[in-house]
């Protein structure tokens, strides 16, 4: 419960800081911290939790106020990515998050193109995708390090304290 609450809080903070600080400071070169946070949480918590985190976080990202795109685009994308990252990210979270942080901007643009968004063209993709991927790659280690540090701390505490939380984690690990 506490774990879910803290995940929600972390995502909320990431959402707010992304649009009110990072985007305004760095403009087109802003890394997508929301994406990175959600992917990292998914990698640390396994496929099912990753899918749920991805869906909820993506939905919040869709609803985040200066939004003029179709509701559900990010929910779809991040739900699928959360599942996949949770599946493969158990052993090497850093690598998995980095790989999918590179892929994600292109997939997001692809979904936009499927919905008939006029701005998604090859010229735009060819310049925007590498840039977005590079920015995400630069920021990814920091996010993964920060979140996994927190997570490991809390997991250790959970194991020594109550049994329920520890068992869920080991169950999640055994599944992958």
């Amino acid at each position: 419960m506490l774990r879910n609450l803290s995940a929600a809080l972390i995502i909320f903070a990431a959402l707010v800081l992304q649009v009110s600080l990072v985007n305004r400071l760095l403009g087109a070169y802003a890394p997508d911290f929301v994406l990175l946070t959600i992917l990292t949480l998914a990698a640390l918590r396994g496929p099912t939790a990753g899918a749920v985190i991805g869906f909820c976080g993506g939905l919040a990202y869709d609803l985040l106020p200066p939004a003029s795109h179709t509701l559900g685009q990010y929910a779809l994308l991040l739900c699928a990515l959360g599942f996949v990252v949770g599946r493969f990210g158990e052993n090497a979270p850093m690598l998995t998050v980095a790989v999918f942080a590179v892929i994600a901007p292109g997939l997001a643009a692809g979904i936009g193109a499927l919905l008939g968004n006029p701005g998604v063209t090859w010229t735009v993709l060819s310049s925007a995708w590498p840039r977005a991927a590079l920015c995400d790659l630069v920021a990814a280690p920091a996010v993964v390090w920060l979140l996994s540090g927190r997570y490991r701390l809390r997991r250790r505490g959970g194991r020594s304290g109550s049994t329920g939380m520890g068992r869920t984690t080991s169950w999640g690990r055994g599944m992958a």
Binding site: V16, S20, L64, P66, H69, A108, A109, V120, A128
Partner: peptide, 9 residues
């Protein structure tokens, strides 16, 4: 706040 995703918005 500001959001820009090339193509999206």
């Amino acid at each position: 706040a500001r959001r820009d995703f090339p193509g999206f918005e």
